[in-house]
Amino acid sequence: MTAANTIYDFSADSLAGPPVDLAAYRGKVVLIVNTASQCGFTPQYQGLEQVYQQFKDRGAVVLGFPCNQFGAQEPGTAEEIASFCEKKFGVTFPLFAKIDVNGGATHPLFASLKKQARGVLGTEAIKWNFTKFLVRKDGTVYQRYAPTTAPAELVADIEALLAE
């Protein structure tokens, strides 16, 4: 596997603005999620925060990437997104600047994730908000999960990857 196949080759702007080198998460199990504040799945923020709290001291992290590509369900500014996530769901896990996960302006991180873990019927396209990618400690994708998969359903997989 080449280095180009890991999340560590990418950076993304934090919700606060400065870029974050994803190599900062080297050696951790990482759950990457495209999020939205006005989606039917938005209550998953609470479950994502619970997973983050459960595992943050054991070497796992949740990274949220707001996306406005599905039904314009993330129309807010960075400040509005941060305020909403903190006040409504108590989110403390890292959030990043709004990105595209499909199309010509797809963020390179998500282009890589989609190549490593295809969706239903082998498609690369992300179908909706709260698609989840679980990444091994070596930076490669372990599995892709549908928006309907509740964060709590990933606990056993996270435990297994932490034990590797």
Score class of each variant (00 low, 15 high):
Gly103Trp: 04
Ala163Leu: 01
Ala97Trp: 03
Leu134Ile: 07
Glu79Val: 04
Ala125Asp: 11
Leu31Asp: 05
Ala105Val: 02
Phe89Glu: 00
Tyr45Ala: 12
Gly47His: 07
Pro108Ile: 13
Gly27His: 05
Ile158Glu: 06
Phe84Val: 09
Gly59Val: 11
Pro43Trp: 10
Leu154Trp: 02
Ala3Cys: 01
Asp9Ile: 06
Pro19Arg: 15
Glu79Asn: 04
Val101Met: 06
Gln46Ala: 15
Leu113Lys: 13
Glu164Leu: 11
Lys132Ile: 11
Leu63Asp: 09
Asp157Met: 01
Asn102Ala: 02
Ile7Tyr: 08
Lys28Asn: 05
Ala72Arg: 11
Val101Thr: 11
Thr77Glu: 13
Tyr52Cys: 11
Asp57Phe: 06
Ala24Pro: 02
Phe130Cys: 10
Thr140His: 14
Pro18Ser: 08
Ala36Gly: 05
Tyr45Asn: 13
Gly71Gln: 06
Pro108His: 10
Ser37Phe: 03
Thr131Asn: 00
Thr35Cys: 00
Gly71Leu: 13
Ile32Cys: 10
Asp100Met: 04
Gln69Cys: 05
Phe93Asp: 03
Thr148Gly: 04
Gln143Ala: 14
Gly119Phe: 06
Thr2Tyr: 11
Gly139Glu: 04
Phe70Leu: 12
Leu154Asn: 01
Gly119Tyr: 11
Glu159Pro: 03
Ala111Gln: 14
Ala163Thr: 08
Gly104Trp: 00
Gly64Trp: 07
Val20Tyr: 12
Gln143Phe: 03
Gly119Ser: 03
Val135Thr: 08
Ala82Phe: 02
Ala60Val: 09
Pro94Asp: 12
Phe96Pro: 00
Phe55Trp: 04
Lys56Ala: 12
Leu113Val: 08
His107Ile: 05
Val120Thr: 12
Ala78Val: 08
